[in-house]
Amino acid sequence: MFRYTVKRLIQGVITVWFIATATFIAMHSVPGDPLSGERLANEEIRANLEARYGLDRPLFEQYLIYMGNMARGDFGISFTQQNRRVNDIIREHFPVSATLGILAVVFAALGGILWGALTALFRNRLPDIVIMFLVILGISVPSFVVAALSQLGLTSLNALLGVSILPVAGWGTLLHMVVPSMVLGLGTMAFLTRLMRSSMLEIVNADFVRTARSKGLPPTRIFLKHQLRNAILPVITVLGPAIAAITTGGFVVELVFAIPGLGRYFVQAVQQLDYTVIMGTTVFYGAFLVFMVILVDLVYGLIDPRVRLE
C-alpha cells in the first residue's frame, strides 16, 4: 500500500511536469503577446516590461526559470493586472469554484446512486423507463443549454410567484449555490445513474443476495448492506474523472450564472492573452485533477478490500 502510494505520487508529479511543459510550449507558440498592446508604443517601456517578465531571455532559460518558480509554488505576476500575483488570483477565485464543484459532485453522486439503484430495482417498469429517458436527455443536452434554460425558468418562476425564491445569478449565500451546482452536476449525475444501474443489475440477483434473502433478512437491510454497498464500487472508480469533468465544466456555469470562480477568470485570461494567469491556472487545474484521481484510486483501495493495490 505504501509503495503503491509513493509510486502513484511520483507518477503524478511527472504528469504535472508534463502538463506544465506542454502548457509552456503551447503558450510560447501563440502568435502575438500580451505586451504588443496598443499603449506600449515606447520601445523603452516595452524593453523594461520584457525584462520584468523575463521575456528577453532565451526560450530555454525562460523555461528553466518558469519550472524553478513553479516548483516553489510561484506562478508569477499577471500581465493585464500588474499589481496582482497569479497565486493571489487562484487563492481568491479557486475556493468559489471548489465549493461549486464539491456541491455538484455531491449532488451528482447522491443522485446517481439513488436513481441508479431505483431503476435497477424497478427494471423495465415505469420508474425505470421514466428515469432512463431523463438520463438520456441529461447526457444529450449541453450544460450551457441547461444552465440558460434553468435561468430562464427560474426568472419566470420568480416573476410568476412575485417573490424571489432562488436568486437567478450571482454568488454569496447558500441559496445562490443551489441551482448552479445542480446544473453543473446534472450531466455527471446522468452518467453515474447509468453506471449504477448496470452495476446494480448485476448484483440484484447475486448469490449472496439470494442467501441473505433466504436467511430472512429484511429487504431494507439487504438493499443497504448487501446490494447498495457492492454496487456502489464502480461508481467510486469513475468519481475521479467525474470530478475532472465537473471542474472544467464549471466554466460555462460560472459564465452563465455570473459566479466569480476560477473558470470564468481563466476564460477571461485566455481572451486577454494573459500568459502567466493562463499557465498558472492550467498547471494548477491539471495538478488538482491528477491528484484527485490518485486520491480516488487510493480511497477505492481502502473501501474495497478485494482490490489489491500494486
Binding site: 508534463f18 502538463i19 501563440v30 502568435p31 502575438g32 492550467t282 485533477l289
Partner: peptide
C-alpha cells in the same frame, strides 16, 4: 499516451486553439 490522457482536455483545447491562432 497516459500523459496525454492526463492533460485536462478542455483547458488544453482552449490553449491549443489560441496557440494555433
Amino acid at each position: 499516451a497516459d500523459f496525454v490522457v492526463a492533460l485536462p482536455f478542455l483547458l488544453f483545447m482552449i490553449l491549443f486553439k489560441i496557440a494555433f491562432g
